[in-house]
Computed example of a mutant assay.
Amino acid sequence: MKKVLLIMFVVGLVGSAQAQFGIRAGFSSSNFSDTNFEPRSGFHAGIYYRFGENFLKVEPGLFFSQKGYTGTDDQGRSIDEQLNYVEIPVLFRMSLIPAVNVFLGPQISFLASRNYQLGDVTSTSLEVLTAYDLSGVAGAQVVLPLNFNVQASYDFGLRSLNYFNTAVKNQVFKVSLGYSF
């Protein structure tokens, strides 16, 4: 019985007239909270599924995102910390007017890989920080003609990464272009 209900629920979501699949990619600028590091530029890309009524829609997604920071240490050596995550956001979109919506929602991110460069020393060890991150996402989107959209968002960490036993959180500003099928 549970399987039948689950199948009916999934078919209802997929068959909804207001449902849309889409792709999104763009620029990211990330840093750690409470540090004096410089932001690191990166990118993010993935897929989303949007469903709901005209005024309020729900949008789960699956994305790859680069995060981290840059800077220099006390001896003047350059630092470049690139953290690659698989993200699963669940956004709640509220339409202000037909072409503009604002959104807010939770996101869980799983650390996929790490590339730390300090001068000539490189490390890929994942043991210096937690394996997952919890954050909130807030932003706005403009719907463009031909099923395109552009959005800006801010990811604010809710959980300490315990980075080298230091309580820091991810902070990421994103600008992206999307296409809904």
Rank of each mutant, 00 (worst) to 15 (best):
N31C: 02
F55T: 15
V90T: 12
L96N: 11
F55Y: 13
K67T: 00
F32D: 12
S65V: 08
Y69A: 15
H44Q: 13
L91F: 01
I79Y: 01
R93G: 08
N84S: 09
E38P: 00
G76F: 04
V90F: 05
S65M: 11
G61F: 03
F51M: 12
F92R: 10
R93N: 15
E87M: 12
R50W: 05
F43G: 14
S41L: 10
I88W: 00
P60K: 09
E59G: 06
G68C: 06
D74Q: 07
L83T: 01
L56P: 08
S41N: 13
Q82A: 10
V58M: 13
L83I: 02
G52N: 11
Q75W: 07
P39E: 06
D80V: 11
D34P: 01
S95H: 13
Y85H: 06
Y85V: 02
K67Q: 12
P39I: 05
G76Q: 04
E59T: 13
L91A: 13
S78N: 12
G61Y: 00
G61T: 06
R77W: 11
R40Y: 01
Y48S: 04
N84T: 06
L96Y: 06
V58Y: 14
F51Q: 07
I79Q: 10
T70P: 01
D74L: 12
G42I: 12
G61E: 07
L91H: 04
P98R: 10
G71L: 02
D73R: 05
V58G: 11
T35V: 10
G52C: 12
G42Y: 04
I79K: 07
E38Y: 00
G76C: 11
G42S: 14
T35Y: 02
F32K: 07
E87G: 08
D34M: 02
G61D: 08
D34T: 09
G52Q: 11
F63Y: 12
F43W: 09
L62M: 07
E87K: 04
D80S: 14
G68H: 02
T70I: 04
D34K: 12
I88S: 05
I79H: 03
P89N: 05
P60G: 08
